[in-house]
Write a protein that binds this DNA or RNA. Structure first.
Lengths: 132, 132
DNA sequence: CGGAATCCTGCCTGATACTG
DNA sequence: CAGTATCAGGCAGGATTCCG
């Protein structure tokens, strides 16, 4: 039986992994999470369950293929659940798991950062481009 | 003269942007930040200035092309500075700006999350793949 | 050492069409 | 409505070579 709390177990686990190493599984995980659709899907689900069509509408510019692909991967990784309601027409609902919620908090920070510091970035670009 | 604090200004600015809109500049910024090399470079610089060769060694698997390209973009966006010391051989040092540091804090959270929850993700995958 | 320039491959992505 | 299947192209990204 485990004598560690979940938090202690995570800490011990973290010490064994290093995302800087190319072969480390966390490196592959980090690569997968570093995806614009992943970020947007997670943030779109932050307030609760959403239907497929709701997500497609909210996340402007995503193709059906990429949305489905992203949702499947996130489901496989245990970050969200997919629920099919047998009605006519059929309804499919996606919802974050507790694991997904913990990641969503990090992702939301990224989105907020982008929206908060956009001005500073645009100024930096203008300044950089002005140089001879 | 501005009558708002920097924090207030950022908040007001944030309200004008929405990364869910495909045409919004923050969406493009979010796309750029959702890059594995960006994440790793920012985290690699968290403890202070680093030379080009140090970064190349630390971030296993990155090609010279991608490392240079990533560094250039981050420099243009005002997230880090590039300093050339005219010696033989030449030395180039990269260092986070205050803006870069604020983003680095978010990025570090992503890396820590990946390293902390790797086990849970692997279990979820095994469970998903076991289904008929 | 720290790049720039070039070439070239693959797979990511979008568009389209079809189904339960 | 919520997908799957297929096809085609474009550019991300690796490998290589050369330079100050």
């Amino acid at each position: 039986m485990p004598t560690m709390t979940a938090a202690q177990r995570r800490e011990a686990e973290r010490a064994e992994y290093d995302a800087f190493l190319a072969q480390c599984p966390t490196r592959q995980l980090l690569d997968r999470l570093s995806d614009k659709w992943v970020t947007l899907v997670l943030v779109a689900l932050e307030e609760g369950p959403r239907r497929y069509s709701e997500l497609a509408r909210r996340i402007a510019g995503v193709s059906q293929k990429m949305l489905t692909q992203t949702l499947r991967t996130l489901e496989r990784d245990g970050l969200l659940t997919r629920t099919v309601t047998a009605s006519v027409p059929v309804t499919v609902t996606y919802e974050l798991t507790p694991l997904g919620h913990s990641l969503q908090r990090v992702m939301a920070g990224l989105k907020v950062w982008a929206e908060s510091h956009m001005g500073a970035v645009l100024e930096a670009r203008a300044s950089y481009d002005a140089q001879p």
